[in-house]
Simulated assay, not measured.
Amino acid sequence: MTTGLPDLPTAFSPVIALREGGDALRRAVELAPQHGAGTLAWVRSVARIEAAVVLEPELPLAAARPALFAAANALADALGAYGPAEVAITLGWPSTIHVNGGRIGRARLAWPHGAAEEAVPDWLVVGIEARLTFPAGWEPGHGLQQTALREEGWAEEDVSAAELTAAWARHLMAGLAEWQHPGPQGGFRRLADRYLSRMEAAPWMGEARRGLDPATGALVLEQDGTRRLHPLAAALMEAA
């Protein structure tokens, strides 16, 4: 079957193309027990980017959830490779994607129901979704602080949803490999630094110094000798 995705690494197999309206994350979750790591589901669409990949982590669930940050970083990298040089691509806690201050999408994460925090899960699924264009009839002001890639300079004649999806998959593979190889140029610190360098400071964060807990992916805020933790698992449940 033709995947419709250009220049996709062979590690991604099988590749499942869904029709407009499909849910890539849900489909990848359905396929995860049978097909395992590398399964990629994506949605053929002219209006949005949506894709998800099955992973088989070697870490306990709590420590494996930062795969979400790798997915968000990869989307930012993919957009940066194809978009105008002057646009600002930023991340909101825990995984929203903003372009020039407007929200265009998010990274997503799923894991087996009932999986224990301290146990290695059979699989994880990371996914992304981003708005290419607004629906027909959309007028400015309908959605405050929202935008679409076509509105911000990602021209249809320059890049397609398929090309951006494939770019995300390639950057995701690179980011996960970097995370899995500790050292001066890799490991969790590198993953965290890349994420934090793009993360927008929300008002509730104040002037605190920001970090990520490698054991859980929690956001760590430190100010005036006080240390506050914002669990990643809780943030994902709130965003669901």
Results as ranks from 00 to 15, higher is better:
15 V>Y: 05
78 A>W: 02
111 W>R: 08
40 L>H: 08
235 A>I: 04
143 G>I: 00
84 P>K: 13
54 V>R: 03
106 R>H: 10
14 P>A: 11
127 G>S: 09
83 G>K: 09
179 W>F: 13
177 A>C: 05
224 D>I: 00
9 P>A: 07
19 R>C: 00
173 M>N: 07
56 E>S: 12
218 A>F: 07
28 A>W: 00
57 P>F: 03
228 R>M: 07
68 L>A: 06
108 R>D: 14
34 Q>Y: 05
73 N>Q: 12
181 H>M: 13
238 E>M: 08
97 I>E: 02
108 R>E: 15
135 P>A: 12
11 A>S: 11
226 T>D: 13
180 Q>A: 15
240 A>E: 13
200 E>H: 10
48 R>E: 15
211 G>W: 04
66 P>W: 01
186 G>Y: 10
45 S>N: 05
143 G>P: 00
177 A>W: 02
172 L>W: 06
232 L>F: 03
225 G>F: 07
7 D>Y: 00
234 A>I: 03
101 G>Q: 10
95 S>P: 02
17 A>Y: 00
230 H>V: 14
210 R>S: 01
32 A>L: 05
107 A>Q: 03
185 Q>S: 15
226 T>K: 12
33 P>K: 10
236 L>Q: 11
125 V>C: 07
175 G>T: 01
89 I>Q: 07
23 D>T: 04
